[in-house]
Design a protein around this nucleic acid. Structure first.
Length: 119
DNA sequence: CAAATGACGGGGT
DNA sequence: AACCCCGCCATTT
């Protein structure tokens, strides 16, 4: 099966599944948490392969700066925005406020958090 | 093996 | 903000 190494996919999906409801993180963030630094694109690749009925909360993964990665007008774009709103995450012009809804980033201590390596 | 491809990231204009 | 360009990296052509 023409699919990226299963263990890497598993690690990535495990991280995505662990994103708390009402929180978002970035592709790069997921990659880092999965022990795959600099492989944000692989995260996108894996998520793109999820079946439509998947229960994995892929909608909690956004691009850098809180950008919704899907092109304007696309079905997935609308779906993600709708799902995020359903958990209390508002998006303005395809952007979510990461400082407010970012995963494990207690607004105000971002620098210290990054310095200590997250967690 | 070289070139192209991405649900990306960062910087510059 | 809107673009463009380049770096990064596993996969695919």
């Amino acid at each position: 099966m023409t699919r990226p190494s299963d263990d890497r996919a598993a690690a990535i999906l495990a991280v995505v599944r662990s994103i708390p409801r009402g929180r978002v993180t970035t592709y790069g963030g997921v990659a880092a948490r999965a022990g795959l630094p600099r492989q944000a694109r692989l995260v996108g690749k894996i998520l793109s392969g999820l079946p439509g009925n998947s229960r994995v909360p892929w909608h909690r993964v956004v691009a850098s700066g809180g950008r919704i990665a899907f092109p304007a007008g696309s079905e997935s774009r609308a779906k993600q925005i709708e799902r995020l709103r359903a958990e209390g995450i508002e998006s303005v012009r395809g952007r979510v406020d990461v400082s407010r809804h970012g995963w494990a980033t207690p607004a105000g201590d971002l620098d210290r958090w990054l310095w200590s390596g997250g967690e």
